[in-house]
Amino acid sequence: MKQVYSVPKSLQPRSTHYCPGCTHGIAHKLVAEAIDDLGIRDRAIGVAPVGCAVFAYDYFDCDFQQAAHGRAPAVATGIKRSVPDSVVFSYQGDGDLASIGAAEIVHAAMRGERITVIFVNNAIYGMTGGQMAPTTLVGQKATTAPFGRQKEHCGSPLRVSEMLATIPGAAYVARVALSSPGNVAKAKTAIRKAFETQLAGEGFSLVECLSTCPTNWGMGPYEAMSWLEENMIPYYPLGEFRTPEGGPNNA
């Protein structure tokens, strides 16, 4: 029989610590598939964040560095600049990247660092137990926004991809959703393109993956994906915001 789907070789053959139905696992597989497809496993150096993906290094079969909270783009910069031949990717959540690491991500993009950032946006702090993130939707409940996020009190959620797409050094910026077979297929394409952008030396690349957090959202995994499509996508539209060919594409 012909194999239609095989587990990517760049993933370690072990079980993850993620909750059942958590889309981190899907994002991990897509990154590993891109590494496999491009044949870059022996050049890949990942940077793990602080957050649920802190142990990402346990799941990829490539070199890794674990970074302080929000500092992954700076650590990735240090790696890429000292080993220019490497393929460097950071894997960061929304608290890590959009809150405490906002300066680092903006300036990595400004410098056009030839790194690839996988930005997992599930609109909440997962590891610490469901606190409000900069990406939490208005009205969405969190343990530190028990009545739902109020715009008057803490502003509107940050649209990271749109913001980074204004930066000339950002060569490829796309937002995808890990919420359905069709969207996951598009995410696979985007992640591969982001790595290709780095390989071509064209600049900074980032793929924002709208993701679910069934545990902290208090929903089943499938229900969470429906909630993502109904609530997150209207505020966080999908598409490529910047490509090496030029400015805003289909956003």
Binding site: V47, Q65, A76, G78, I79, R81, S82, A103, E104
Partner: peptide, 14 residues
């Protein structure tokens, strides 16, 4: 300075 020392971390790690 925060970014600088973390760049040092990344490069030192290589």
């Amino acid at each position: 300075e925060v970014a600088a020392i973390n760049m040092v971390y990344g490069a030192a790690g290589t």
